[in-house]
């Protein structure tokens, strides 16, 4: 007996094929971006820096961080009523002195040069290099127990023309 059943049998479900683990979403970049934005609450910039755009400059290749800042800070926030502008350059534009400059670890060799150009200009210098908080940085990102933390140098903040909140000392993993 034939009932002429034509039936396509799928014997297999889609066998597990994970796509590459490589995540488009960089969680470390998000953490840094949240720190960078939140640190602005603990500093006061000189009067001369309170008009125009609030400039955040990134030195080095940090695409994920730049994306985070663009998507969540530049387009959605203001700082002290100022619009935020993001610059990705390793050179200081005299007409666009940054309010914050973040130097990637790969560009740490430029810290000294950039720091000398920014003295007393009202710039929060953020680095990610061992020992940098003891020399030129105001904030230096460090990793402790698999977590992103930061060291703080209050005296450097004053050198760059910033006033800092005393509360920041309690939040930093080390204070110099």
């Amino acid at each position: 007996m034939k009932y002429f059943i034509k039936h396509i049998v799928f014997t297999l479900l889609c066998v597990l094929l994970f796509s590459s683990f490589k995540q488009n979403y960089d969680i470390n970049a998000k953490i840094k971006a949240v720190y960078i934005y939140n640190l602005t609450r603990y500093f006061e910039w000189p009067e001369s820096a309170k008009s125009g755009n609030f400039i955040i400059q990134i030195v080095g290749n940090a695409n994920s961080l730049i994306k985070e800042l663009n998507d969540n800070v530049v387009s959605k926030k203001t700082i002290g009523g100022q619009k935020i502008e993001l610059i990705n350059s390793d050179k200081i534009d005299k007409n666009k002195i940054p309010h914050i400059i973040y130097i990637t670890p790969e560009n740490s060799s430029k810290i000294k040069t950039l720091a000398s150009q920014l003295k007393n200009k009202g710039t929060l210098l953020i680095t990610e290099q061992e020992g940098a908080a003891k020399t030129f940085a105001v904030i230096n990102f460090v990793v402790i127990d698999n977590k992103q933390k930061f060291e703080y140098n209050k005296q450097n903040a004053v050198k760059y023309g910033l006033k800092a909140s005393e509360d920041l000392k309690q939040l930093a993993s080390a204070v110099y």
Partner: peptide, 28 residues
Amino acid sequence: YNQGAHIIKTMSFDIPIEQIEQMQDKSV
């Protein structure tokens, strides 16, 4: 991994700094 990443992804930019560490604790 996704659970850890999800905690950081959904972390608000307005979170107080002291809470960033707590969020990282959970994620880690």
